[in-house]
């Protein structure tokens, strides 16, 4: 049968997915119900304790902060990347290529390298504050990191090149006559982007924002390197619990809750966007 090979391939892919994704996930869910043992690791007895700890206020607080931070980061990434691509698409072919290469090379940098370079750029001894001080714009230049803003810069940097490169072909290849049509129909040139280009790309931008949201939820290095403790996201807390305290049950429980919250948010957004298009 012709279908045999594709079927086998499909089953293999499914098997790999199971082994590498579902099994660890299942393990995590199971562990999240174990009892943490301060003297050893955990006891394999069922308890809701780890989930109760989530609702203790602190983790709830951190979760809300995480969602807000990540959502803000995702929105900023997409807005900035979209604006940048609109600008780049207006340049000559040569310059477009130049910027695409810059973005590609940015994408090759690891999280840690990006984090470190911003750490240096924002430091008072070597970076922007020192420059501002030397130029006389800042009397007492101080390090700009760690701070919420520095962490946000880090998060935006992480997503920017990916989102830009996804958007570029669509933005550069769009039918410009639609925007011209809007002009002939009485839209002032500076409003065309807002009234026409943005709505046309809205679906794509929403999808990218959601993708970025999920991606940034898992970012660990930027909050630690560039953020203050009060900016740390749930990912930091989870890894602190699981690795730092060797409290795998609580870490797992927190991870499961984050997974559920992320899932619910994605589902709601998906349903909402379905309704919009319908």
């Amino acid at each position: 049968m012709n279908l045999f090979v594709p079927r086998v391939l499909g089953m293999t892919a499914f098997g790999i997915l199971c082994v590498f994704f579902l099994v660890p996930l299942a393990f995590m869910v199971v562990v999240s119900f174990y009892k943490a043992d301060p003297m050893a690791f955990y006891q394999e007895t069922f308890t809701w304790e780890n989930y109760q700890k989530f609702f203790s206020g602190f983790y709830l607080n951190v979760t809300l902060r995480t969602l807000w931070t990540t959502a803000l980061g995702a929105v900023l990434v997409v807005i900035l990347a979209f604006t940048a691509m609109l600008a780049i698409a207006e340049l000559s072919r040569k310059w477009q290529l130049f910027w695409i290469l810059v973005l590609l090379s940015l994408m090759c940098l690891s999280e840690v390298i990006v984090g470190f370079s911003w750490l240096i750029l924002l430091s008072e001894s070597a970076g922007i504050p020192r420059l501002l001080g030397a130029l006389g714009f800042w009397d007492n230049p101080r390090s700009l990191s760690p701070s919420f803003g520095a962490m946000m810069i880090g998060l935006v940097m992480l997503g920017f090149s990916v989102v830009s490169l996804i958007l570029y072909p669509q933005v550069a290849g769009r039918d410009k006559s639609i925007e011209e049509a809007a002009q002939t129909l009485g839209t002032a040139p500076h409003l065309v982007t807002l009234y026409v280009t943005l709505p046309i790309f809205m679906q794509t931008l929403i999808a990218l924002t959601l993708t970025m949201f999920v991606y940034l939820l898992g970012v660990f290095v930027m909050p630690i390197m560039l953020g203050r403790p009060r900016d740390w996201t749930m990912t930091v807390m989870i890894s602190d619990k699981a690795l730092g305290d060797a409290n795998l049950p609580l870490g797992s429980a927190l991870a499961v809750i984050m997974l559920i919250i992320t899932g619910v948010i994605l589902l709601i957004s998906l349903l909402a966007s379905r309704k919009r298009t319908a």
Binding site: A36, P38, K53, F58, V62, P229, R230, W232, M237, D240, G244, D245, N247, L250
Partner: peptide
Amino acid sequence: DWLESKFQEMIA
């Protein structure tokens, strides 16, 4: 665990 959480909450 308790101490860890208290300390983390305090700084975070």
